[in-house]
Structure formats: structure tokens, C-alpha cells
Nucleic acid binder design. Structure first.
Lengths: 345, 345
DNA sequence: TGCTTTTGAGGGTGGGTTTTTTCATGGTCA
DNA sequence: TGACCATGAAAAAACCCACCCTCAAAAGCA
């Protein structure tokens, strides 16, 4: 592995390093003859400058780092696509790191990216970080004013910029949708409480019932334990008498599983059971019938977050004042809550 | 944004740069008093060495780059998880870049990662690269022996290492599965021919029919044009008389759509129509009934690719001889091809 | 006073950019 | 014809940040 460097080129051609550097930049200081000779050699050996050296010299890499729990989630991949669109339009490249929902990996990747690898970092919190509530590893970067923007899950107590959705309102609207269909025995499939996103959706669910003067049946609120088989846990809802006639799941996976379990019990969808999920996901479009969902507009979330970050990066020296942006959610009504869904394949 | 550096620390404490450096490494050359003073200051200011400077100095970054078309695909995210497992066990971190299936982005990200950002790169070809058949941007790296390993889609004419699956054989087995069920009017939903992976699966489909002395009905071979609505195209298959009684789709998305369209026509699954897909995907587990698929073992593919790469990285100076590794595929029989599927939720 | 040990300063390295310096040539003018 | 300056071309040096080897100065000890 011997990559050409300015030094090796200079040596081979008997000129100085600076001459090679200038020739490559078409500096008028270098005579056409010398320049041509150098350019010729560089083309032949496919010279490319070392990006580390460039980054070190310019204190700028042209790179935006993104830390996500993992990218299997379609929602995150939509966010990333949005980030990329904005970043690339501004001449930046995007590198992605996975935290695997672990605090340690989150911290280490942030250190890596922030210590020279990237000009700014976009991230969403790892579950473990949320659970522990320990956000100390962000403090040094926040204090120094390193460009940092959160999306979706963020440390609410810290003075940081973030792009989120109004989960409570979205949860309320999804529930309201079920109520408008005349459903009254509503069930909720949620996550553990420490996942604030799921918790806020639950708050929205409760609010919708309250607003309509309906009681919340705590037996119909299911908090999934991800370490145990999902199907088993969800099946419990169908064993109740009477079973629920409407289910709001805080993500599309839980909703899809509920839908399929309902098929097994022979329930008619949506007449006997309506199901609505959450997420700008890919599963929802491939269930039968297809799932109604609250859509999160991940693409726009990514775009907005990237715009915030670029503003921070390019506003040199001005300490950015934290701002929270809220992305609207939408409701896509598909077959799981309507006999006459609008959307077609 | 003023991050502490060795120099700034040295200046602040009135010592030399080398003293600070040694103190941080607990060198016995530095007196306990001085060392404590320096460590104290570094803790206070949260000093972290600059990764670019480290990379430059050591000619080693401890990072593995991965280039994928995008991560929305569950399969790729499984591969990445496999890569990460092996990489992290060996003390490497993983950074991911998206090519968006564009050659330009693929080339630029490779340049970025290979020019100092990473010690080695794992990648799968962008669709555009496959379509154009132009692999020149890989040549300089291959010639220099830069550690590079392909997975899934790779340039077959080039002397490179790759980890793939035997798509032809997998396609044959999936088709054989349908034939064993007694299905005879088999349809294939495939991709454009330039996607070699889809093409090889098609070859397997043809081989299975041939082996069983059955003719291939070209009308039942559908090549999807991704720019047009998928549903429209797939619907065509159901308009044929008689309609197919078995469908093999080269990915899970096409299979899921076919499954749902079949519901609309009222066909019984799997009695009147059996559907089998391809991919270690997430959609397959959420359709109704759940999809039988050829599983690609993305996780193992990622592990194997990472192992090959690490061997290349750590075998310094020895020009690696290219090797192709083939990962076994499996068949997971779910409800779409069996009334008594084994797998449960 | 002379020798050893401790302590830490200094400089080179990695690869590139950029500013400053050097040097040779050519022209102008007395 | 020689002194002086302008010009152009390229070399040298500084810088970015951390590491590491070499070596000098100061302190300790007999």
C-alpha cells in the first residue's frame, strides 16, 4: 500500500513539496512547463490528497456525522435521507454511526466524530441513555459550542437544539380517529415508560379519551417488554371479554402484529377491530389490510435538523441559541381503519 | 469553539508539549507532581486528542468504512450489524456512507474513506454502477492493495474479495419449493436484467423448471420497472387466464405486494396461490399470512466480510489474494406457502 | 567537584496548505 | 558598463495536532 503523497511526488520530480501543491491548485506562481509535468505525473499515479491532512490544516472536513441507534428502522433511514439531501446541496458529505442503543457506543462515536472527523453531528438518543437519564457525555460539546443537533429523542433538560414531533398531539389525534369511527373499547400498545416518545403518545391517548368524557381502562394499556416475545404479550389483549374494538399502537411493528393476531381470531378489520399505528414506515404498506398510521415525516425532520446544524456550523463564533423545532405529523388512513381507504398500491 | 490541544495545555501550564503528552501517557519520565497538575487540568477541560492528528501520525485510524446504497433495506442493516459485531470485537469502529445507488456518490465516499478516514472499506455496488458496468474508480485502490471487500453485489471481472450468496441456487430452491407443493403455473417477479443478483435468481427459477421438465412461460416473467407504480405492474399477473398458482418474487417487497393483491382478488393463500419471497427481511414477518422467504443471512454475510477485511488490514504488506466466499441461504416456510407453518409469532 | 539520575525541553514526523524568502534573470538608467 | 530594482519561479518555513526519540539542564549524591 504506497499511496503517492506530495512529498513522494516532489522527490520523484526533483521539485519541492510546495511546488507540487501549487501546481495542483493551478497557482500562477508555477510555470506552465513545470505544472504540466507535475499534473501529468499526478494523473498517472492517481494522486488524491490525504483527507486527514486536509482536515487538520483547514480545521474543516466538509463532513456531517449522524448517530442513530440502528438503521433497520425505516423511520431513521428516512431522516438520514433528508439530512443527506440538505447536506449534499451545501457541499457536505454524511457519515453515519450506529449507537446500537448503547450509551457507550453513543459516547465513543460522538467523541470520534466531534474530535476532528466531522464539522457537526446530528443524533438521536440511544435507549440506554434515555433509560439512565445520564447525559453528561454531551456537556463538553455543548459547552464548547460544537455544532450538535438532536432529532426525535433528545435530552429535554439540556440547552440543545432539536427537531421533534409533537408526540402527545399525534397520539391524541390517532386516538380521536378511532373514537370518530365509533370505537369505544380502545386499547393501547406502548413501550416502557422511560422511552419518552412512547410515553408522550400514551399521554395523547389518555387526553383524547378524557376530552371525550371516556374512562381509561388500565387493563387495555399494554406496555411491551422487548425482551419477551411480542406476539405472546399482544395476544393477551384478545383474550379479554369483550375484546377491544380499536387498537392504537405506538409503532408500526406492534400494530402489524396486532393486526395479524386479529386475523387469527377471525375478527373483521376494520368493522370489528380497527388498528392504527405510528411511524413513517415500510411495514404499514405491506400488511393486509394496510395499516393506517400517524406519519412522522422523517424526511422533513432530517432536512430541518440538517438546516439547523449547517446554520450552527457556518455561523462561526456566534454561540448558537438552542431551538426546538416541531415537525407536523399527518394521519394516513388505510384499510385497517377504513373500508374505503383512499390510498391505492 | 476552542478545543484544548496539547499546545494550548502546555502554554497554560508553562510546560512543553512533550511533557503534556508524556504525562497523559503516564510516562515515568514525568514527576508525579507535574503529572498530577497536567492530568487535573486535562480532566477539567475534558481534553481529548484530535483524531485526525492521531490518524495522520499512526497511519491507522481504527475505523472501518462501509458503503451501502441505503439502509432502509433491512437486509443491509443486518449486514451492517454483522460487520459491527466483528469489527468492534477487534477494536475497530464502523462508519457508514450511503451511495444512494449513484456511482458518483459511491466513488466520492470511497475516496473519502480510503484517503485516510478508514483503514479498510466494505461495500456493495450501487445500482448505477452495475447498470453502467464502469468499475474504473475501484482500480487505483485494488492496485495499491488498499483493504477492500465487497458483499452481495460485486464487480465480477475484477480481482477482488467478495462475500456473496449463491443466488442461482437459492432461486432454484425457492422455485423447487413451489413445485413440490404441486404448483405448476409459476410466475416470477424480477428486477431489470442489469441487476445481476435478480438475474441470477431468475436463472435459478428457469433451472428448476427445466430440471423438472417444465416449460418456462415467458408471459409469467415480470421484470419490474422501479420508476412506475409497482402495484399496477404486478396486477397484470392476476389478469392472466388462468392466473398463476405460485409466485416467486426476487425480493420481499414484490412478494408482499403480490400477496396483498391476491387478497383483493379473493384468492386463497396458499391453496390457490403460493407466494415466496427473497430476503432476510422485516416485511415478510408482518404480512398476512406471513411470507415464506429465502433468507440471506445478512448478519453472517457481514461477519464474514468483516473478517476478510480485517485479515487484509492486519496482514501488512502481503498483497492479499482475492477470494470469494459464499454464504448459504435458507428457506423459511411461513403461511404464504404452507397451511401449517412452523414459525409462530 | 564530579558523576549519576531525574526532569523536561526540543525537534523531527505524518501530509497538506499558505505565507515568506531566496535566487536568478532581465531591464533601466546614469 | 556597473548599480539598482522589478519580475517570475521555486524553495523554504510555518502551521494544523499529536507522538516519540534525542539530548541538555538541573538536581541529587558522594
Amino acid at each position: 500500500m504506497k499511496k503517492p503523497t506530495l512529498k513522494s511526488i516532489a522527490k520523484a520530480l526533483g521539485v519541492s513539496v510546495s511546488t507540487v501543491s501549487k501546481a495542483l491548485k493551478n497557482s500562477p506562481e508555477i510555470s506552465p512547463r513545470t505544472r504540466e509535468r507535475i499534473l501529468e505525473y499526478c494523473r498517472l499515479h492517481q494522486y488524491e490528497p490525504n483527507r486527514m491532512a486536509l482536515g487538520l490544516r483547514h480545521r474543516r472536513t466538509g463532513i456531517i456525522g449522524v448517530i442513530v441507534p440502528q438503521t433497520g428502522h425505516y423511520f431513521f433511514s428516512r431522516v438520514i435521507t433528508g439530512i443527506q439531501k440538505v447536506a449534499e446541496a451545501a457541499g457536505y458529505r454524511v457519515l453515519i454511526a450506529h449507537s446500537n442503543n448503547e450509551s457507550r457506543a453513543e459516547r465513543e462515536h460522538l467523541q470520534l466524530l466531534a474530535n476532528g472527523y466531522a464539522d457537526g453531528v446530528l443524533l438521536t438518543l440511544a435507549k440506554e441513555t434515555l433509560q439512565k437519564g445520564d447525559f453528561r457525555h454531551f456537556l463538553p460539546w455543548i459547552q464548547r459550542g460544537f455544532p450538535l443537533v438532536f432529532f426525535d429523542r433528545y435530552p429535554e433538560k439540556l440547552p440543545v437544539s432539536a427537531v421533534i414531533i409533537d408526540d402527545t398531539e399525534a397520539g391524541r389525534r390517532a386516538t380521536e380517529h378511532l373514537l370518530r369511527m365509533g370505537k369505544r373499547r380502545l386499547a393501547l400498545i406502548s413501550t416502557p415508560v422511560y422511552l419518552s416518545v412512547g410515553y408522550r403518545r400514551e399521554l395523547g391517548f389518555r387526553k383524547a379519551l378524557n376530552d371525550n368524557g371516556l374512562p381509561v381502562d388500565e387493563n387495555r394499556i399494554l406496555r411491551i417488554d422487548e425482551r419477551r416475545p411480542l406476539g405472546e404479550q399482544i395476544r393477551g389483549l384478545f383474550r379479554q371479554t369483550p375484546p377491544p374494538d380499536g387498537i392504537f399502537a405506538v409503532n408500526e411493528q406492534y400494530a402489524a402484529i396486532a393486526l395479524n393476531l386479529a386475523h387469527e381470531t377471525g375478527m373483521k378489520i376494520p368493522a370489528e377491530l380497527a388498528v392504527i399505528g405510528f411511524s413513517d414506515g415500510i411495514i404499514a404498506r405491506h400488511t393486509y389490510p394496510r395499516l393506517s398510521t400517524v406519519v412522522q415525516h422523517g424526511f422533513r425532520m432530517g432536512q430541518t435538523a440538517a438546516e439547523l446544524l449547517l446554520a450552527q456550523i457556518e455561523a462561526d463564533e456566534l454561540p448558537p441559541k438552542p431551538q426546538i423545532k416541531i415537525i407536523d405529523t399527518g394521519l394516513v388512513v388505510r384499510g385497517s381503519t377504513s373500508a374505503y381507504p383512499v390510498e391505492r398500491l
